[in-house]
């Protein structure tokens, strides 16, 4: 059985200006111990996707159809109480605004303890303390800072604390939403390395969300490229890096300096990211695509397998 399987997920935000289709036709799975990355530019729906896996969506989000199966159970059908027990125990999340995801008036250590206590109410005080200390050691935070408040931490320390909190219950899957974007490159590198070690050690699965495709290649086993609420290309990091197929993926790759290739001039993707309001037909990238032709506007591109497990959704391939 797959750890996580998402089938045909579609979601809209209802706003004053009408409904906005934020996710459509989302189809993917995560194996045990695997790192799957989602990349795409701002507003393409990465966070929305991550939130739906934990069912943490804002009130105006409405799931139109689809299934989110975690170890075979449909998350969308869980009762409030079942959902509560599923959250953090099975799947935890490192939020995009990690800086603000700690409560400013509670001690960092207590916030981690709270996560453990919620799911293991019978745990003894001593055991709890031991667990939190182990977590602090794991993410390289000094034990003397357990009793500090978040504002006394530096940005990097807060990031580590948030990671420690996500690891507190040894969940099977961690969703890391732009977990390191706010940090400088050195700290970012360090944290990524440590996380990777942890992931190997515990056999964790990760959903790694980033707008940085180079970083995704480095970290993830497989990468899914999103555009305008849809996945347009998905495959192993190698395949995508070596033979990007969708015009959008190619554009993304060109607009980012990779770590391997010598730093090139950044080339921004021409045009504006789209905002889709209805179930529009046709390819979403149509307006900005250098290879677009008339049919792209009319026909929603089907999935094509261009290599083993390398899928692309483009009429021109």
């Amino acid at each position: 059985m797959r750890l996580l399987e998402v089938r045909d997920l579609a979601l809209e935000y209802r706003t004053k200006k009408g409904p906005f289709l934020a996710l459509e036709d989302i189809q993917f799975h995560v194996e045990k111990g695997e790192v799957l990355a989602f990349v795409g530019e701002s507003g393409c729906g990465k966070t929305t996707l991550g939130m739906s896996i934990l069912r943490l969506l804002p009130e105006n989000a409405h799931i139109l159809r689809g299934e989110i199966l975690f170890e075979g159970r449909d998350i969308l059908r869980l009762s409030q109480e079942e959902l509560r027990r599923y959250r953090w125990k099975e799947v935890s999340m490192i939020f995009q605004a990690a800086m603000n995801s700690l409560n400013p008036v509670k001690r960092v250590g207590d916030q981690i303890k709270e996560a453990i206590q919620t799911h293991e109410p019978d745990i003894s005080k001593g055991e709890l303390k031991r667990r939190v200390e182990a977590l602090f050691r794991l993410v390289n935070l000094p034990l003397s800072r357990i009793g500090d408040y978040p504002h006394q931490y530096s940005g990097g320390m807060r990031q580590r604390a948030v990671i420690a909190m996500a690891l507190a219950l040894r969940p099977k899957l961690i969703i890391a939403d732009e977990a390191t974007t706010a940090l400088d490159v050195i700290v970012q590198d360090q944290i990524l390395k440590e996380t990777k070690l942890l992931q190997k050690e515990f056999g964790l699965s990760f959903i790694f969300i980033s707008h940085d495709i180079a970083l995704a290649f480095e970290v993830a086993d497989r990468v899914a490229v999103m555009y305008g609420g849809r996945v347009v290309e998905m495959g192993s990091s190698h395949d995508l890096e070596d033979s990007p197929t969708h015009p959008y993926t190619m554009a993304l790759l060109e607009s980012y300096p990779t770590l391997t290739v010598e730093r090139r001039r950044l080339r921004p993707i021409p045009g504006d990211p789209i905002k889709v309001t209805g179930g529009a037909k046709g390819c979403r990238f149509f307006m900005r695509c250098p290879e677009a032709e008339a049919s792209c506007k009319e026909i929603t591109p089907p999935w094509v397998e261009v290599g083993k497990g390398h899928m692309v959704s483009c009429l021109r391939r």
Binding site: L54, L56, R84, R85, Y86, R87, W88, K89, S92, M93, F95, A97, N100, S101, L102, N103, P104, K106, E114, A115, T118, H119, M165
Partner: peptide, 19 residues
């Protein structure tokens, strides 16, 4: 955001509000 974190941690709604 920290309210979202609390909710993600699986806290009961009552505890999220009060604590």
């Amino acid at each position: 955001d920290y309210i979202l974190t609390a909710r993600a941690k699986g806290l009961r709604e009552k505890d999220i509000i009060n604590r």
